[in-house]
C-alpha cells in the first residue's frame, strides 16, 4: 500500500539521490536533531555542542551553553568545568531562568496548537458529512453550472442584505436613540414607508424599545388595529353606498373584527395591562360610533 504522505513510513538508510529531496530532508532532520539536543540539556543538565555541515557546505551548529565554550573545553582536554567566578555563576543562573521561561512559553504554544488541531479535525468531519448529503451548492464554485450559479448568487445576495441590516442594527444598539420623545418619529415613519423596507423594520424595532408615553403608544397601536379591519369595513361601506337597508347589519359584522383586534393586541402587547387594552378597544369602537367631525378632532 502506497501512503499519501511520508508520515510514519520507513525509508532506506542510504544516501538520497534526489537533490531537492535531500535538501528538504537535511533541513527537517537537522531541526529535529537540534530539538533533541535542546531537550537533553533541559532535562538532564548536560552540556552539548553539535556541528553539522550542510550539503551546500554551510555550517550549522547548536551548543549549550554555547558552541565555542564546549569545543574549547574539548580541545583543551579539560576534564573539569572551568573555575567559575561569581560573575559567571550569576550569568549561568540568569540564562537558566530565561531558558526555563522560554520552555514554559513553548509548552503553552504547543498545547494551544494541539487544541486548534483537534478543532480542525472536527470541522473536517463536519465537511465530509455535509458532502455525503449531496448538497451541490457546497461544491467548489468551478463545478457548478451556469443556472446553478445564478440562482445561488441571488440567494446569497438576499442573505447578504439581511446580514448587513442585522450588523448595522447591532451597531446602532450601542448608539443613543434620538427618537425618544421626538415627534419626528411619525414623520420618519411616513417617509420610510414610501421608500423601502429594511429601514422600516429597523425603525419599528426601535419604536418597540422606546419608553413611549400614552400618546405615542396610542399612535403606534392604531395602525396595526386597522391593518385587518379594512377588508370587512370596506365591504360594509360598499354595501352601505349601494343598498341603504343593509345598515342594520353593521353590528353583526362588527363582532368578528373586534375579536381579531383583541387577538392582535394580545399577541403584540405581551406586557400590556388591562386598562390599556380596554381603552384601546373603546377607541376603536368610538371611531365608528361618532360622526366624522369627532374623528378629525382626535387626529
Amino acid at each position: 500500500m502506497v501512503k499519501k504522505s511520508k508520515g510514519r513510513q520507513k525509508i532506506e538508510m542510504v544516501k538520497m539521490k534526489n537533490e531537492s529531496n535531500l535538501q528538504v530532508t537535511f533541513s527537517k532532520r537537522r531541526s529535529g536533531l537540534f530539538k533533541k539536543a535542546s531537550e537533553l540539556c533541559t532535562l538532564c543538565g548536560a552540556e552539548v555542542a553539535i556541528v553539522v555541515f550542510s550539503p551546500g557546505r554551510k555550517v550549522f551548529s547548536f551548543g549549550h551553553p554555547n558552541v565555542d565554550s564546549v569545543i574549547d573545553r574539548f580541545i583543551n582536554n579539560n576534564p573539569l568545568p572551568p573555575h567559575q567566578h561569581n560573575n559567571m555563576q550569576l550569568r549561568e543562573t540568569r540564562r537558566n531562568s530565561i531558558v526555563q521561561d522560554l520552555n514554559n512559553h513553548l509548552t503553552q504554544v504547543l498545547s494551544q496548537l494541539e487544541t486548534e488541531k483537534k478543532k480542525y479535525d472536527e470541522l473536517k468531519k463536519i465537511r465530509e458529512k455535509t458532502k455525503a448529503l449531496g448538497n451541490w451548492w457546497e461544491d467548489p464554485v468551478e463545478e457548478l453550472a451556469l443556472s446553478q450559479l445564478e440562482g445561488f448568487k441571488g440567494n446569497l445576495e438576499n442573505l447578504k442584505k439581511v446580514v448587513t441590516v442585522e450588523a448595522s442594527r447591532f451597531f446602532q444598539a450601542n448608539v443613543p436613540n434620538f427618537y425618544v420623545g421626538s415627534s419626528s418619529n411619525n414623520a420618519a415613519f411616513g417617509i420610510d414607508d414610501g421608500s423601502h423596507i429594511n429601514p422600516d423594520m429597523d425603525l419599528f424595532s426601535q419604536r418597540r424599545m422606546m419608553d413611549i408615553n400614552a400618546f405615542n403608544y396610542n399612535q403606534n397601536q392604531i395602525h396595526p388595529n386597522h391593518a385587518l379591519p379594512p377588508f370587512g369595513n370596506n365591504a360594509y361601506g360598499i354595501n352601505e353606498g349601494f343598498v341603504p337597508e343593509y345598515n342594520v347589519n353593521f353590528r353583526p359584522e362588527y363582532n368578528p373584527n373586534q375579536n381579531q383586534i383583541q387577538n392582535q393586541n394580545q399577541v403584540q402587547i405581551q406586557i400590556q395591562n388591562q386598562s390599556f387594552k380596554r381603552e384601546n378597544i373603546s377607541e376603536y369602537e368610538h371611531h365608528h360610533g361618532y360622526p366624522p367631525q369627532s374623528r378629525s378632532d382626535y387626529y
Binding site: I11, T25, R30, A37, V52, S54, I71, R73
Partner: peptide, 18 residues
C-alpha cells in the same frame, strides 16, 4: 539521529556531550 542525518544526506557532522 545524528548518524541517520549523516548517512542520508552525505554530510559531515560531529557532537560533543559533557
Amino acid at each position: 539521529k545524528l548518524t541517520e542525518l549523516v548517512t542520508l544526506c552525505g554530510v559531515e557532522a560531529c557532537a560533543v556531550v559533557y
